[in-house]
């Protein structure tokens, strides 16, 4: 197949705007999960588990378990918002609602439609982060001003998880198949990315695997910023996500072209 360069103008914002309009229709419901979810986790871990967990260290210093997991909750939230938006939700728009079909009969190009979708997924990650971070900050679990950098970071992380989500949307046969990447990709990352315990606790080989997980890098970065520590994880993470987007964004465009341009 001939590989043509992406055809993207500023018009992709119209696609983004369409999703925003739909989101605004039910914003009250959309706002609830990111507000309540951290409360549930903080309650479960803070009241339930915290007393049993001792000796958690970050950067060589003992820290409370709540402070340890709070930034991880933000990172998981970024992953989930963008990934689920650009898999299940994008698939519904593409396959069931035929929204992309209608858009393709307008001056929009397919590349713009997909770009708009991924940027929207990243935007949802930012909205979710703003809400969740506000709740977590009330408990004094984030150091400022460094913590403010988590907001732009949520956009970058959202782009990465959105792009790989869109890549899956380009290749799955039906919506049920998304359970596979969720089970094989999202769930292991959720558990083994240094989210609820340090990856140093894992056997060496598992640590090596965890290094390729995007959530591992995202968690390391949100944690560094939440603690106000500017360490090498930030630079390594930035490089990692730049590379990740550079691979999966064009790949998502390519797979969606193959799927829809027939």
């Amino acid at each position: 197949m001939r590989i043509t360069p992406p055809d993207i103008s500023r018009r992709f914002l119209r696609v983004w705007q369409r999703n925003l309009t739909v989101y605004q229709e039910s914003w009250k419901i959309n706002f609830i999960p990111p507000l309540l979810e951290p409360l549930f986790y903080l309650l479960a871990f803070g009241v339930g588990l915290s007393a049993m967990v001792v000796g958690i260290q970050y950067q060589g210093e003992a820290v409370s378990y709540l402070r340890y997991i709070a930034p991880a909750l933000l990172a998981i939230n970024i992953m989930n918002n963008a990934f689920f938006e650009n898999t299940f939700a994008s698939f519904v728009r593409m396959y069931y609602q035929k929204t992309f079909d209608a858009m393709m009969a307008t001056p929009l190009s397919l590349d713009e439609i997909i770009t708009g979708e991924i940027i929207w997924g990243a935007t949802k990650a930012v909205i979710g982060t703003l809400l969740m971070q506000a709740v977590i900050s009330l408990f004094g679990l984030i150091t400022y001003p460094a913590g403010l950098l988590i907001i732009p970071l949520s956009f970058l992380g959202g782009l990465a998880f959105g792009a790989i989500g869109m890549y899956f949307t380009g290749i799955v046969k039906n919506i049920e198949i998304f359970n596979l990447p969720v089970f094989l990709f999202i769930t292991p990352m959720f558990l083994f990315s240094g989210t609820f315990f340090p990856i140093e606790n894992l056997p060496h080989w598992a640590q090596q695997i965890a290094l390729v997980f995007p959530l591992m890098h995202l968690t390391a970065m949100t944690r560094a910023l939440a603690f106000g520590v500017y360490d090498s994880s930030l630079l390594i993470g930035l490089g990692y996500f730049a590379l990740f987007c550079l691979i999966f964004f064009p790949l998502a465009l390519y797979k969606m072209r193959r799927r829809l341009l027939k």
Partner: peptide, 28 residues
């Protein structure tokens, strides 16, 4: 050109008027 495809691919979550507004934006 204006295109009316076989399926009624309106935005189900939006109102009639919003559907037209959103679509007009695609044409700037």
């Amino acid at each position: 050109i204006g295109v009316c495809q076989q399926e009624n691919n309106l935005d189900p979550d939006l109102t009639v008027l919003q559907n037209l507004e959103v679509f007009a934006r695609y044409f700037n």
